[in-house]
Design a protein around this nucleic acid. Structure first.
Lengths: 189, 189
DNA sequence: GCGTGGTTGGTGAGTGCTCACTAACCACTA
DNA sequence: TAGTGGTTAGTGAGCACTCACCAACCACGC
């Protein structure tokens, strides 16, 4: 593994375990097994290092799962349950880092800019799910009136929310119940 | 307004505009119109100041709106739309501060502890909504099979999610579509 | 085959700056 | 006159980042 890769891994590890505020160049260097000065042979400054971590060390399990969906295969409701389970796990894992970017508006702006030029970002996840739901609707396996975008946001948003709340309270996530409720709807009285 | 109040207002303002990482005692003091040392006449340390802001300056519009809900009044669906609109606005406003707490695990732990002893926290919001939905169900205005907890998480989670995504992309929130989709459900094909 | 000089990637020891926090002091009021 | 609430002018610690230096490798003329 290259020095650069070891530095990225170390930085990602420190960010996850110590929080962004405690992620100093000293800590990263120690975790990577190099001197602080060595960091600057591979990255212009700390911001470039952070942005590289965000770009190159983002877990892509959820995006991969969603990209592999194929309309018409299996039961839609089963698929949604599987997605919800994966989404909760994904958001629990990524939330601390994603959230802590908000403590540094300059970093947030730089990250937004970087995402825009690469054409990816957090919003691609619900878009991929919406595309799948649209395809299932076209096959007649979802009602014609359903809005795929809202449905994707409802499901992923609830998973995101339950992951978020899990950090403040001991409330357990319940992906199965979410899918059941979304499936049945509130308006059947 | 007391000095203490002015300090809390100033701290909340700096936190919102500059981000938690740039919220220094110097900035807060400047914004409040006092010397840095004056802060320490009213707060033991910076953490106590932050926790006081989180406790005493949390916008309570959403919690207030939810607490004022009365089952049986108006149309349930209309009420939910109103809630969704308020929730999006609320989360857009509060998300940056709530999120940036994750960059300081020590602060997060202290906040969790403080919330626990006061018996409130982010989780009380969906709980209040769930209680309202449960009451409507008891009145027969929602189907008997619906799970109020999941429904509350779906709606508020989607609002939270759309607010979150709004910080990364220019995707507009659409509370009305969320309520429509949640109301109709996905399983009516 | 072997000195020579350039490049790459590393080090330890700093630099100046900003941070949270404090000591000493002072004005006002009960 | 004692207490409250403010000030100025610091303090040591920790921060991102830089400096001078060095070891290993590599192409190349002789």
């Amino acid at each position: 593994m290259s020095t650069r890769d070891r530095m990225l891994d170390a930085a990602a590890h420190v960010m996850r375990t110590k929080g962004l505020a405690r992620t100093t160049t000293k800590e990263i260097a120690k975790a990577a097994g190099f001197s602080e000065a060595a960091l600057y042979k591979h990255f212009a400054d700390k911001t470039e290092l952070f942005l590289s971590v965000l770009r190159e060390r983002a877990p892509s399990d959820l995006a991969g799962l969603l990209a592999g969906l194929e309309a018409g295969r299996g039961e839609v409701r089963e698929t949604l349950t599987e997605i919800a389970r994966a989404a909760v796990a994904f958001y629990v894992e990524t939330f601390p880092i994603a959230a802590s970017i908000f403590s540094e508006p300059a970093l947030l702006a730089a990250h937004r800019e970087a995402l825009k030029t690469h054409g990816v970002g957090p919003a691609t996840v619900p878009e991929t799910l919406a595309r799948y739901l649209g395809a299932e609707r076209a096959l007649g396996r979802l009602p014609a009136g359903v809005d795929p975008g809202s449905a994707a946001d409802l499901l992923l948003g609830a998973c995101h929310y339950q992951a978020f709340l899990g950090f403040f309270s001991d409330r357990p996530a319940d992906p199965e119940a979410l899918v059941r409720t979304l499936w049945d709807g509130l308006g059947r009285s």
